[in-house]
Amino acid sequence: MKNSKVVWTILLFACCSAIAMAQEKWLVPEANNDMLSILIFDEDTQLEGKLIYTRSCRSCHGDPTKKDFTIMSPSPGDVASDLYQDQTDGSLFYKIQKGRGPMPSFENAFSEEEIWSLVSYIRSFNPEYQQKLPNLEGIEIPNLTLHISYDENIDKLVVKVTSDSLEVMADASVKAYIQGMFGKYPLGSEMTNELGIAYFHIDSKIPGDTEGYLDILVKTYKDYGTAKYAGKIQAGNPTIRKSAIEGRHLWSAAKKAPIWMIIIFNMMGIGIWGVIIYVIFGLRKFKKLS
């Protein structure tokens, strides 16, 4: 009897520590640990990371900084916490790519670039973070040039990537956005084909300016070479914007009060005060009647 209790207790301890061990040690191979991002982290990579995160990670990891991750064992944890921020970029990349236990592997789901943009997003919650860039000595970085046009027959933005000398750049990654007042609307992320061309669909219903122009932003990346384009393309729906304070509304200035309100207010005022004034003037008649 006594013996079996001791055995059980030992077994229980063993199990617990096994679980604890498993939770603690997630070994990342040296080479992977030191891997550096192929992207330079900026607002755009963060934005893209955020979109992916919201779709694919939030359900378990919760909103970063809020510590509202799903309770499970092992715990997913908050990606803004030190547990994450103390790791190298390469380690985060590796863990997202490979997964472990309940943490799914995203190797087949996302391209390397997308995983790096997730890392970029996770890093955006660390104000002290400074991206470590690879040593680029001896590597030839291509000079990229963007050629932008719009094909209105198929509603597509056509982006061609070449080198300075107009040599076609295949397999360059291209991202396109529409610039809004408060943020960017991503049109997508594509690789150029063998002709160095990537297409982006633009919904023609997207409201442009009065002539249908949209502010377009395009970025490309290949082997640490980058290029950027910002300009107007006539691809949207011509829209005449009305100011919210134009016309007569409840929220307008005094001079632009709604007509019906002016009428009702004044009618009631004049009606009631008319009677009051009639009575006040009528008071003089008392003297005549004496």
Binding site: V275, K285, F286
Partner: peptide, 21 residues
């Protein structure tokens, strides 16, 4: 008292005003 002298006419007028008010 606006020159009030308790005449019937005055009372009538006052009551009329009162009713309106």
């Amino acid at each position: 008292s606006l020159g009030w002298t308790n005449t019937t006419g005055q009372y009538q007028l006052m009551k009329r005003f009162m009713k309106i008010l």
